[in-house]
């Protein structure tokens, strides 16, 4: 009979514990974890000048305007140019479009700042991997490439980088891997191994330059963030020394910016030493230095339309 009592007691306890299990616990137990994408590692397709891992979504059109003013300080800055405002170092106007949620293309016209000017750019960016909220995929990885052609009149001096013996001399390319992670809702960091190829360069310059970029965003509020971007080009010492001796020393582009989002518009107010806006030039031909007051303010305006 003892056994029977125990059995009955067990049954009652079983019943009791079942009744205690709340619907809440039941739901939590059943909940299927899905791999939801991490949203907005950056609010825009650019960190500052260089790319972010973000792509436009399907059927989205992005109208972009980027502007770099003249040197804020130094020889060409100061009050007489209203701290560079009177000069425009580079201007870019572009239309970019999302073909799928992961593939975007774009065309743009850039003034150009460096050996070549009057630049037409075609670009494509593809999102290979998307970070997920459950870290099933820990990183977002995108692949970016562009081709740039210069429309400028060829120089008459054969040794110039802007002397075009044939059409292909006008071309340059960028290929870039964009590896990013949104570490917290407010902190995103990115590594950008980059390759720039210019078909024609000047004496002692390099056709191929590899660079490693780093960038990040720190959000203060829902709509305001601090941006930072730096590229280290792996240029040969020989080439560096040559340009330094010539008084045309090359510097690594470093830029800081503020990101402001207003629902559909993203504004960047930026400060950086590079005059050029395109990777093809700012990675390879930045000749101005922060330390000599040769940094400038600039802006990026992005207006996205859902078509």
């Amino acid at each position: 009979m003892k056994h029977i009592y125990l059995l009955l007691l067990g049954c009652c306890l079983g019943l009791h514990s079942f009744a205690q299990e709340s619907l809440e616990a039941l739901v939590d137990k059943e909940e299927v974890k899905t791999h939801e994408p991490v949203i907005a590692t950056y609010k825009s397709t650019r960190i500052i000048q260089g790319h972010s891992p973000e792509t436009l979504k399907k059927r989205e059109l992005d109208f972009r305007v980027a502007h770099h003013f003249g040197d804020l300080g130094g020889e060409f800055g100061g009050p007489k140019t209203f701290f560079g405002m009177d000069n425009s170092a580079d201007i870019r106007i572009a239309f970019e479009y999302g073909i799928t949620d992961r593939l975007m293309v774009g065309i743009g016209r850039t003034k150009g700042s460096g050996n070549l000017t009057q630049l037409y750019e075609g670009l494509a960016k593809y999102k290979l991997l998307q970070q997920t909220t459950d870290d099933h995929v820990p990183l977002t990885v995108s692949l970016f490439g562009n081709a740039v052609v210069s429309g400028m009149t060829s120089s008459k001096t054969i040794s110039d980088a802007s002397y075009f013996g044939k059409f292909s001399d006008r071309l340059s390319y960028t290929g870039q891997l964009i590896i990013a992670r949104k570490f917290t809702p407010s902190l995103s960091l990115t590594l950008l191994p980059t390759w720039v190829h210019r078909n024609r360069v000047g004496y002692k310059d390099q056709n191929d330059i590899f660079a490693l970029g780093g960038g990040g965003r720190l959000k203060f509020t829902k709509r305001l963030g601090l941006l930072l971007e730096y590229y280290y080009p792996f240029r040969s010492k020989e080439s560096k020394d040559y340009f330094k001796a010539q008084g045309r020393e090359l510097y690594n582009p470093l830029a800081a910016g503020l990101e402001l989002e207003t629902g559909g518009h993203v504004f960047h107010i930026t400060f950086g030493n590079s005059t050029a806006i395109l990777e093809n030039q700012f990675i390879t031909e930045t000749r101005s230095s922060w330390l000599q007051g040769q940094f400038r303010w600039g802006f990026n305006i992005s207006r996205r339309f859902s078509l």
Binding site: E36, K43, K57, E60, K222, E261, G263, G264
Partner: peptide, 17 residues
């Protein structure tokens, strides 16, 4: 974050902002 919108930008703003 499982809510899906027709416009992706709206979905981003919905979650982010």
């Amino acid at each position: 974050n499982t809510f899906k919108f027709k416009k992706q930008l709206m979905e981003e703003h919905f979650n982010e902002n």
